[in-house]
Nucleic acid binder design. Sequence first.
DNA 1: CGTTTAGTTCTGAATATTCAGAACTAAACG
DNA 2: CGTTTAGTTCTGAATATTCAGAACTAAACG
Lengths: 153, 153
Amino acid sequence: MERYREEIERLSTTFSEKDGMPPVCGRIINYLFLKPDAEATFEELITYFQVSKSAVSNALKMLEQRGVVISKTRYGQRKRYFSINVNIDDILNVISEKHIQMKGYVHEIIQLRSSDTEVDKNLRNVLKLINLINEKYPQIIAEFRNQLNNENQ
Amino acid sequence: MERYREEIERLSTTFSEKDGMPPVCGRIINYLFLKPDAEATFEELITYFQVSKSAVSNALKMLEQRGVVISKTRYGQRKRYFSINVNIDDILNVISEKHIQMKGYVHEIIQLRSSDTEVDKNLRNVLKLINLINEKYPQIIAEFRNQLNNENQ
DNA sequence: CGTTTAGTTCTGAATATTCAGAACTAAACG
DNA sequence: CGTTTAGTTCTGAATATTCAGAACTAAACG
């Protein structure tokens, strides 16, 4: 992974600057993404980035909470293996969750406003759009799965 | 707007804690969202939140950059009016931009990896999914517009 | 059940962010 | 073209975040 050191640093700024994560989070994400099996141990991350155990521990906790990283243990070993969550269903769920949250927010604003101006009309339209997107989502996913199945024949 | 003071404070935490914006940004967003016309002047924000001109200036700059807020001047007045951008096309563009960015990131990772493991296969699938979503987007929007037109008859 | 291994949580120093206040700019009024 | 109005940019203090190092916990080895 030595050859990726600079790329990891460059790509990490996206996550820290745009997504509001600490630098160590961004580094870990990209390290994992660039590993052939997308997986690393705690120890490995510490030695590669020369960073403290607490920094890695907190970063991994944050990434697991966001659903970006998952950890596994193997055959009763103490050691844990941390990897990028590339599970399609999980990714779709994260996106879906965001939509639901956005819907909840817009809904609450509309409730609080309880008026009937042009803006209210627009807000209701935004809500309709969110609903429509959410509604269409399963269809897109179905089509995606279909596409995958066809390719594997 | 006095009656919304507490709600604004409560709703603002979402934006500061989850979206990585400064507190003043969250407050301004919600203030605007709860105003009947979704619009306010610079002066108005300063007096309502008892906050400095620089804080408001920087917050509005950030919000305009993110596409959440737009500002207008009126009839050659010096004063500017800041409002939430509820323009559907603009909102859709922001979402689209995010997709394009995500696509670019995943693409770059795949390029850098230049391997052919199970993870690579998964990443290519993620890319396919992003592409499919982007492809379907215009259709959803068309359907949405259609829905709006039918309602207005 | 003492020891090791693997990671977590606590404490505080270094650093970054947020914002107030002052200095500044740019438009347009008179 | 001096003055006012409306906002921006600069400077630094207050506060929050990030992370290192130390103390701690929890699992499982022997």
